[in-house]
């Protein structure tokens, strides 16, 4: 078992290496960082000077390995605009993003899994159709359209929630809840669609199994059949999608934070776009990729611990 986990952990290292390779070469080949740093008014001598000082005249492979060594020391580079290390900026901004991600994941799973199970149970009925409509809408309505729709109705017209802003739950928990509600619903929409659809599909598949018939035949109440027998056996693809869906959340967080004026990592990205502060964007890509890989690694390891049928 330990050896298995060790192999899985080790297998993420080449993936991280490939991520670094792709990010480095794609960004280096599509633009000149020295020119960006120098700005639009710089002369070509100034650009050349910056190029030498940044080490951009060295061969590409040397630059790449230099950058990888930096990454291994948890050094994501330095912001061009503020001059602060990117890791410091991430540490300053991570709390709102982490909180929003956490509330979104909890809310989505609590809504989407029962939705999917119900749709599978009454497959073909009106609940099923309603769930499928919600799913298609979730994949179609852009995050910001959803965000402004909610703000307009529930914050401006009905005044149930504040329009924008963020308060740390460690400062004022009540305020945190009222401010995080709309962003959470906004960000959850696509995630709910994703999870509900896969839950429905895998529960429908499991409901055709012999042991479900057996459970029903012995007089087990339907709720237990659904949630204990069916859902448990359908869990693997659902949990996988919850992990893979984090990629969607990362994109959505940037937009949601921008709509609701939440000072998190997403806002860091948006500010970096307007200032053309590309080390921040590059550093955040590496950071988010690492989170995504580690999260999916943890999910993989949990499978092997929980489900004895899975042996890689």
């Amino acid at each position: 078992m330990l050896r298995l986990i060790a192999t899985r952990v080790l297998s993420t290292i080449p993936v991280m290496g490939v991520v670094a390779l792709i990010v480095f070469f794609m960004l280096r080949l599509s633009g000149d960082p020295a020119a960006i740093l120098a700005g639009d008014t710089a002369t070509s001598e100034q650009v050349e000077k910056i190029r030498i000082s940044l080490g951009l005249t060295k061969p590409l492979y040397e630059q790449f390995f230099g950058w990888v060594v930096q990454l291994l020391r948890f050094d994501l580079g330095t912001s061009l605009f503020t001059g602060l290390p990117v890791t410091t900026l991430i540490a300053q901004r991570i709390e709102p993003t982490a909180m929003l991600a956490l509330t979104t994941i909890i809310f989505s799973v609590c809504i989407a899994v029962p939705m999917g199970v119900l749709a599978a149970w009454k497959s073909g009925g009106w609940i099923d159709r309603l769930v499928m409509v919600i799913c298609v809408l979730g994949f179609s309505v852009p995050v910001f359209v959803m965000g402004y729709f909610l703000i307009f109705n529930f914050a401006i017209t009905l005044r149930w929630f504040p329009v924008q802003g963020y308060t740390s739950p460690f400062v004022d928990f009540g305020r945190f809840l009222t401010q995080i509600t709309l962003p959470t619903i906004t960000l959850s929409f696509i995630y709910v669609a994703l999870i509900a659809r896969i839950t429905r599909a895998s529960v429908i598949e499991v409901l055709g199994e012999d042991y479900i018939r057996t459970a029903r035949a012995k007089g087990q109440i339907e709720a237990k059949v659904l949630f204990r027998h069916a859902l448990k056996n359908a869990a693997v693809p659902i949990v996988t999608v919850i992990g893979l869906g984090v990629a969607l959340l990362i994109g959505g967080v940037v937009v949601t934070e921008s709509v609701y004026n939440i000072p998190g990592l997403g806002r860091l990205v948006v500010d970096a776009i307007t200032r053309r502060d590309y080390p921040i964007i590059q550093g955040l890509i590496m950071f988010f990729a690492l989170i995504y890989i580690v999260l999916n690694l943890i999910i993989d390891i949990i499978y092997t611990l929980v489900d004895p049928r899975i042996r890689y």
Binding site: L27, P33, I250, G251, I273, Y278
Partner: peptide, 16 residues
């Protein structure tokens, strides 16, 4: 697949 698509797109657009 591990790189968030929107971030990669943002980076490519802001560099080039």
């Amino acid at each position: 697949m591990a790189i968030p698509g929107i971030l990669l797109a943002i980076a490519l657009v802001s560099v080039s």
